[in-house]
Nucleic acid binder design. Structure first.
Length: 365
DNA sequence: GCGGAGATGGACC
DNA sequence: CTAACGGGTCCATCTCCGC
């Protein structure tokens, strides 16, 4: 590879983001385990951990585990449990993203706490460390938050590198070092390899990214299909060409909530969905959008996910129509299934930008 | 064969 | 002893259907 032409891609990741924001707001928390929780409202402690700081992680408390389990692991420890305050974190995130964007030639935000920066036009690898330190410094000075940065010749490498040293870390994988860097790492470090894929790879004897890199591509294709196999083969060999670019408009808006108890009672469920429809519609109208599809998501007692969607005859943002369609989908679902509903969600998609006064098409359906 | 619609699975934060 | 268990978004793939 021609090193002088290699792209310089960074992944900047806000460290234990929600919990760090809470620490910043209330410095007396620093040093104590801080656990930011999503309470479902079903019982006192039902819900999961969104983020925990490092003091909490020492006890095995991390994103995704039930709050009850987190409390068990922190029993007798002076820990702080905080309900998550999404709007607040979003405001902080927006300000940090401005700083990051200012430091990039091309920018791509991924979620609330991460972004890719293509900085190839403002530096090469010899200046990458200096630039990365400057960006970390900017965020620290302006927002009093630490971030971890990974640098590589593509997004996959940058992402993995960012995870090597945390928090407040910096890892640079120079051109030519990519393969040795990747080879010893477990496959699940690779972007797009989650629990299910790890299981399937393990049954093929693939444990490390190096195993994957040297695995027969044809056999890989038999198991994963051609597209995924090609991706796995290239990425594990340090090759990934996807460019860093701003994400387009959002393609769907949804809200999901947990019911107070498992039920199949239409009326009880509709009480919840009506509220959710109003919230979704408010967001849609705020963005000046109209949608052409409405759907429901049902999470069953046994945590299975079922979805139903319906296309409308034309674009709308009428909450009454949305509620009506949701009710129909729900009724039909309840007829088809005999399982109790645990969580219920609504979503809209298929957006069209609402230019002038577009006809609202509320009459039929 | 190609599209839209609809359902599912997987991934990630 | 095990199980416990949020919310939001995106993407790929598959099937079915009409054209």
């Amino acid at each position: 590879m021609d090193a002088s032409r290699a792209r310089v891609i960074m992944l900047a990741d806000l460290d234990y983001f929600y919990a760090q924001v809470e620490e910043r707001k209330n410095p007396s928390l620093i040093g104590k385990p801080v656990v930011v929780c999503v309470y479902s409202g079903r019982t006192e402690d039902s819900g999961v951990v969104a983020t925990a700081n490092y003091a909490a992680r020492k006890y095995g408390v991390k994103s995704g585990i039930p709050i009850t389990l987190a409390k068990k692991r922190l029993l007798g420890i002076e820990a702080v449990f905080i309900a998550m305050n999404h709007d607040f974190y979003k405001e902080v995130s927006d300000r940090v993203m401005v700083i990051l964007r200012d430091n990039a030639d091309n920018f791509e935000q991924v979620g609330i706490d991460e972004a890719y920066l293509d900085v190839s036009q403002r530096t090469d690898f010899s200046g990458a460390e200096k630039l990365a330190m400057k960006i970390k410094d900017d965020v620290k000075k302006k927002e009093s938050l630490t971030i971890s940065i990974g640098v590589g010749t593509n997004k996959v490498l940058a992402k993995i590198a960012s995870d090597m040293k945390k928090p407040d870390g910096l890892t640079i994988v120079r051109p030519g070092e990519s393969k040795e860097f990747l080879a010893p790492l477990p496959v699940d470090k690779l972007l797009g390899v989650g629990v299910k894929t790890v299981e399937r790879m393990e049954s093929l004897g693939i444990k490390t990214i190096g195993d994957l890199a040297s695995y027969d591509q044809g056999k890989l294709a038999e198991v994963f299909g051609k597209n995924l196999a090609t991706y796995f083969h290239c990425a594990s060999n340090g090759i990934y060409e996807e460019v860093v670019q701003e994400r387009g408009e959002r393609e769907s808006i949804s809200r999901i909530a947990t019911l107070r108890e498992d039920t199949r009672d239409l009326k009880a469920i509709l009480e919840k969905t009506d509220k959710l429809c109003e919230e979704v519609n408010a967001r849609v109208q705020q963005s000046g959008l109209t949608y052409r599809s409405v759907g429901i998501v049902v999470v069953t007692k046994s945590l299975g996910i079922r979805m139903r969607t319906k296309s409308l005859s034309g674009p709308t943002n009428d909450v009454m129509l949305m509620k009506k369609v949701v009710k129909e989908l729900l009724q039909k679902y309840l007829e088809e299934s005999s399982i109790e509903v645990r969580r219920i969600g609504v979503h809209v998609s298929n957006f069209t930008k609402k230019e002038k006064e577009q006809s609202q098409l509320t009459s039929f359906l």
